[in-house]
Each structure stands twice: as structure tokens, then as C-alpha cells.
Design a protein around this nucleic acid. Sequence first.
DNA 1: ATGAAAGCGCTAACAG
DNA 2: CTGTTAGCGCTTTCAT
Lengths: 347, 347
Amino acid sequence: MKDSPEPPDQPIPAVPGLRPIRMKDVAEQLGLSQTTVSHVLTGKHARYRISAATVERVWKTAEKMGYRVNAMARAFRAQKSYALSLAVEDLSNPFWAGMAIGAEREADRHGYSLVVTHLAGNAGRQRRALQFLHESRVDGLIVSPVCGGDRDLVVAHAQGLPFVQIDRAVPGLDMPCVRTDHAAGSVLALRHLLRRKDRAIVYISGPLDVPTYRHRLDGFQEELKRSGVEAAAIEVLKEATAEHAETRMIKLLERQRRPLAVYAANFFTTVGALRAFRAAGKAVPDDVDIVGFDDILMADLLRYPVTTVDQNVGAIGREAVRLLVKMLAGAEVERAVLLPPHLTART
Amino acid sequence: MKDSPEPPDQPIPAVPGLRPIRMKDVAEQLGLSQTTVSHVLTGKHARYRISAATVERVWKTAEKMGYRVNAMARAFRAQKSYALSLAVEDLSNPFWAGMAIGAEREADRHGYSLVVTHLAGNAGRQRRALQFLHESRVDGLIVSPVCGGDRDLVVAHAQGLPFVQIDRAVPGLDMPCVRTDHAAGSVLALRHLLRRKDRAIVYISGPLDVPTYRHRLDGFQEELKRSGVEAAAIEVLKEATAEHAETRMIKLLERQRRPLAVYAANFFTTVGALRAFRAAGKAVPDDVDIVGFDDILMADLLRYPVTTVDQNVGAIGREAVRLLVKMLAGAEVERAVLLPPHLTART
DNA sequence: ATGAAAGCGCTAACAG
DNA sequence: CTGTTAGCGCTTTCAT
């Protein structure tokens, strides 16, 4: 029941009007030219030295008549839709949803609306998003490149279409990418696991042809080297699913006699590992210890506390919009923006 | 690494073009009038009896030149933006995100794009969404009415703006609303809890001036009557937060000696109840039993298994879009659409 | 079977 | 200070 603060917008007028009111209508009502009305309503009356009296009359009348600019006419005239498109992998995942929220807020700040699209790993849907861009339904696109759609993005770039990538960069494509510094996340994870000295260090995650997993493993191994520690196991799964992770983790639990310190560098492998712990009757943190990647809702209510490396999702969306808007303004933009993750320790 | 099936779209042409190609360009290239090109490209060549040869030439050339319709010009001309707006309470909540996905899919089916907005309980943001509608940035709006913004929606309706409500209907507003049949959900919940005969039945949820909670409690009490069972406690919290629920539930656990069968008719009260169980060292299902409302991610990994009444979120989004599109086509639409929830039992 | 012309609502260059 | 005019790209009558 709380009421809201924030936008001190112009109030919505109570005046009906089946056919929307145009500038022309306001002008006729006042016996002025449509041009003058435009000058006033677009706030350029200073530039054109409209008399204060006229300005006042125009404002009043426009308000009274319930005038609203026709956004389509304005967009058409300016050849700008004032809309951006955000094409994310999976909206039902809080990671992507959080990004959409951050992006929407930033887009709003710049006067753009945001069209959010759900790609679901489908190259066809990504192509449709590019088509929207090509047809000027949106002025720019933020896209998390889908597997199998890299060529389309390369072509789009060749066509001069403005977009920025998030989370994953298409190899060899000279367009900006905003993502988390996964390697840095792995460093945080390993340091956390190394608090306890007696543990067998285990890494488990997805295939290395996915750059995300590649980066996470790289960061992990470099930090191992720096720490002078050997990993007991580096598990690179063919697919980063909960099922694969569970199976593999159960085997590891049988084999190892030392308590494990697991870095499950992906949400689903984390879930799989936790299921394995439960199946094996292990307890955290006595028998096993685990760090996952990406925040988990209600983590405190899980059987096993999971420390997580959290991406700053809102910031990714925000930065992506910032870059895109800058790009649309014709400025040069950074090729890559790496955002630092942070650790949320749970015991 | 899976490749995608689905849309058999026209391929994106590899032809660059800094200045986008217009119909005029295609026409000049062919020595035809722009009109003829339009006739062909909009698929109306039959109506205008364009010769098959010409049709063919136009298609080929347009493709070769990399022609794309300018969506803004088309929208302007048609006075339709071909975009709908979805204004949801909270995108970071999987409930609303799922709705957005369903809505986007359906909008797409009808040739509309979907602008998703995050209201965050803010009446100002809801007003902005209405402004977008008023300015024809979008053709229609789907909105989950924000507390404190009811008047704005009433005014918008008076202005003849097309929108549909989801999840909550503004009292006295004669516009369609799509939502879950909450009362039916409560029936499912109670029947589930009554499997075990020895339990003290407890209802806990938010304030009754929120229609959602009102409906849920109503359905619960009616089913109690039908079953001839008395509830041990009906807890109506002032605020449906995890904190309030936890405090209250701890008191209940102290007072009751029989095992509890709890219906926590809201996500946050569910979380609060679970925290209370943990604090009191209770075990599910021996000491307590719980049914919550709305799906919980990774529910199987929780300390306590929670059976949930799940809303068909995708269907809500889909139905809302369907109604809105129908409305925009000038047809009469249902005032209210109630969607049945279903139970996901977990032990 | 094809083309000429008008116009959707708005903005901006230019005139007075 | 205010008005005239042209034009953004497309669709649609209406001619031919």
C-alpha cells in the first residue's frame, strides 16, 4: 500500500479525445501556425524568440486539449525510434532478468525504451532481433550471442548495424563486449576455499570451447599456481548440466577420503554437486565445502550453505546500454568492459 | 553448442549500405515507380495484377540491394507502432519474468514486439508506462496495477486508452483482468494438507485489503467448511514479509503440540515459515508440513521439501496479450480471465 | 499492368 | 516574433 516517490512527471490530463489531438488542432484553436506551436512545445521558444504570452497560451491550451506528441511521427521525422533492444539468453534466469532491469533503468535515463527479447539459445530468434534492428524498429541492440549465430552477427557488423555484446564475445568480431571478469571470480572462489588447509581442491564446470568456462578455469589455475597448491581434480564436463555434475561428483566423493573443497563454476553444476552431497549424506562444511558461480535465491534455506561468486548483473546491463548509446551518438567506445564479481560467503 | 531450429526467416543479406535502401532506390534501379515496388513488396501484386516478370525482378533486386522496410515509416503511415508494453511489478521475480516470456512469445505470434517495463511498486513508473501508450509509442499496455496508481488507470480508461490488467484488478474499473484463480489454489493446498489426519491446520499470509490474499483466504475457508475441518490458526499478517511470518510462526510452533500443517499463501511468508522451522529445529514432514504459493527454484535442495501451488505464469502473459490484441482489433473481450493453478507435491 | 499524387504528424530551414 | 514550405518513407486511392 505504499505510495511512490520518484518521477515528477507531467500529470496525465483528464481530457478524453477519441481522435488524438495533433499540434495542428492546438494551432487552429489558438489561431497560430502549427510551427509556432511546435517551437513552443519542443522547448525551443527561446531560440525563436516566441513572446512569453504566446508561450503561455500554447502551454495552457495544449494541456487543456490533452495534447500528446505522436511518438511515431516524431520517430519517423527524426529517423530514430528511441528504442533499444535487449536480447538475452533466458529471461527466467534471475541473472538475465537482473540485467534486463539494469538495462531498462539506464535506457530510460537516456530517453530510450527497451524491447526485451528472449533468445532461448535459438539462432533464429537472434536473427529476428537483428532484423528488428535492420528495419529500424530499434536504434541499437544488446545481445548475448547465441551459439550457432555468430555468422549473423559478423554480417550485421559488416552492414554497419550498431550493437554491443554481453556475456560472450563472438571470436574475431570487432564489436564491444560487456561481461564479468570470470577469471577474477575464480580467484575469489579459490581463496575462499583455501581458508581450510586440509581439503582436496576440486574444480568442476562446463566445456572449454565456451569462453565463459575457459576464463573461469584459466583464472582458477593461475591462482592455484600463485598459491602453490595442486588441485585434486579438474572436471571439465561435456555439458554443464546438473545431471552430469551430480554423476561425476558422486564418483569423486567415493574416491576421495579427504574432505572436498569444490568450486562448481556454474549454476547448474552447483546444483548437481549439491544433489551429490545429499545423495552421499555429506555435510557442509565438515565433509565438503562449496563455492558456486552466480547468486542463488534463498541460499540460506538450502540444506547446504553455498558461498557464491556473484556477478554484478545490473551493472552489466547498465554498461551495455551506456556503450550502445555512446556508439549511437557516433563516439568511439571501448572494445571490452570487464566488470568485477564479488563473493558472498555463506557458512 | 546446440544449433537451433524454428523460424525459417529470410536470410540477412550480406550487402552493406551506410544509408539504408529505400523503396525509391529499388524503383529507380529498375526504372519502375515506387508504387509498383510497394505493391510487390507488400505482397499485393495479385490485387494490382503486376506481371509475374516484374514481381520477380522486384524481389530479386530488392534482395540484392539489401532492402528492408523502414518500420518507422510504416508505423507512422499506419498509425500503429506494432509494439505492446508489458509493465510488471518485479522482473527479478521468476513469477513476473515467466509472464514476460509467455507474453513476448504471444506478442511475436501476432507481429507485435514487446516493451517490458519494471514498475517496482512505483506509481510514477506506471504513469510513464501510460504516457508511452498515450504517445503511441506502443499500441496497447498490459499492466499489473501498482498500489497508489489506481486513479491513473481509471483516467486512462476514460481517455479510451487500450490496456489489460494482470494479477490485480483495480476496483470498479471496467477493464479486463487476467489472473490466477487463487481460491482454487487454496483448495488444492488444503486438500494436500488434509492427507494427514492428525495435524493442526494453519493459514498464514498477507493483509486482506490486497485482493490476492483475500481470494486465497476465501478459497481456503470455503474448502475448510466443505471438509468440515477447523483451522487451528488463521494468521493474517499486516505485511507479507519473511520477517513477520517467521516471528509469528515461531510463536505458533511454541504454542501447538500437534504437528502443524501450514498453508503459507505467499512466497515470502513461505520463506519466513521455513526459517521458523529451522530455528525451532523442526523436521518436514514429521513435525511440520507446508504448502506454499508460487514455485520455488531448486525446491528439492531446500532443507525442507515444500509443496507449492504454482501459477501458470506463461499462460497469464499469453492470455493478456491475446485479449489486448483482440481489443485492439476492436472486438469485445472478456472482462476477466481466471487461470487454474496446479499443485507440485514434494515430499 | 503501372504510375502520379496525396498525406500520415512533426520539425527545421528560411522568409518576412 | 511568427508563418510558409518542404520533406522524412511508405501506402493507397485513383488515373491511365
